Amino acid sequence: MIEQDWLSERFAEHQDRLHAVAYRMLGSSGEAEDAVQEAWLRVSRADTSQVENPGGWLTTIVARVCLNMLDARRARREDVAGALPPGPATPQPSVHPNGQAGPEDEALLADSVGVALMVVLDTLTPAERLAFVLHDVFAVSFAEIGPIIDRSPAAARQLASRARRRVQGTAQASDAAQSAKRDIVEAFLAASRNGDFNALLELLDPDVVAVELRGARAVASFFSGRAEAARLALVDGVPAAVWAQRGQPKAVFAFTISDGKITHIAIDADPDRVRDHDIVLLGTGNTERR
């Protein structure tokens, strides 16, 4: 009974970190919860007499559970791919966490490159993903990582290095794309605010669609002179525009951009959906999170 109480206390103490590890490994909050629960089942049946570092021991168990889940996921994808006719591979969509994120999750999300990171992690082998996430995100040593993936510390280091190169390349491409999109959205808002019809036409694709309107001239006419209350923002980390009333976001404008032109503008004014977004209002020299 005393040992079980000690286990419960140690597990509760490290649970936020364990969920953060599982989320970064699996890319899904639901699967992360499943992994943590499976880890607890293993922990509750384990012999703890030799455990000197509870945090490291628990992290190792969660990592092994996640590794098994990633291996199973990869096998399922290979089965599905084998049943499909030959053709170009379809990229797997990234999965966003649902519900309230813990403090470690929020910090990790802020430090990551968002969707791009999750997509590129999904292309790594399970061993590469584990080595990179545990070492680069959670500062676990390669001496500890090696046994989890049945590799030497040197081999684990090589796996993490290979994964890091791919992640860094994706991050650089993502940053460039996000910067370009921000410039286009900002220019669109300025032209709309100033009623500059010709500037709007320059930014819009000839076949742009927005608010049940189709075509650059129709969309430019609709938005010309109408963006006084709209502000440049990051919505879930992506450049967008937000209409706010008394400082509270009321509508989100999402832009689809192709070849430097706006091809679609989606407007969402549903209060519940707007409230669920992570919105950072951007200004000249300052930002506000809503």
Results as ranks from 00 to 15, higher is better:
144 E>L: 13
148 I>M: 15
143 A>N: 12
155 A>F: 02
148 I>H: 05
151 R>A: 14
150 D>M: 07
150 D>S: 12
139 A>W: 11
131 A>F: 05
155 A>M: 05
138 F>P: 08
129 R>H: 10
130 L>I: 14
136 D>N: 14
143 A>P: 03
147 P>Y: 09
143 A>L: 06
158 Q>I: 09
141 S>D: 13
139 A>F: 13
125 T>R: 04
153 P>T: 08
156 A>E: 05
152 S>P: 03
144 E>M: 11
127 A>E: 15
132 F>T: 10
153 P>E: 04
155 A>I: 03
133 V>A: 04
152 S>E: 00
134 L>S: 09
143 A>W: 00
146 G>W: 00
158 Q>L: 13
139 A>D: 12
125 T>K: 04
152 S>Q: 05
138 F>C: 09
157 R>A: 14
132 F>K: 09
141 S>Q: 07
146 G>R: 08
160 A>D: 01
134 L>E: 12
140 V>T: 15
139 A>E: 14
154 A>W: 00
140 V>Q: 12
145 I>M: 00
130 L>W: 02
149 I>V: 14
154 A>Y: 01
158 Q>E: 13
160 A>M: 03
140 V>D: 06
137 V>C: 12
130 L>M: 13
143 A>R: 13
132 F>V: 10
145 I>K: 03
143 A>G: 14
137 V>A: 11
140 V>P: 02
142 F>M: 05
156 A>R: 07
135 H>M: 06
126 P>D: 14
136 D>L: 11
143 A>C: 01
137 V>P: 00
129 R>W: 07
153 P>W: 01
145 I>S: 05
135 H>Y: 06
133 V>L: 03
128 E>R: 08
129 R>F: 07
149 I>G: 03
144 E>S: 14
143 A>D: 15
154 A>H: 06
128 E>G: 07
150 D>Y: 08
145 I>D: 00
141 S>K: 06
155 A>G: 00
148 I>Q: 08
153 P>V: 12
148 I>K: 08
146 G>Q: 06
126 P>S: 11
133 V>F: 01
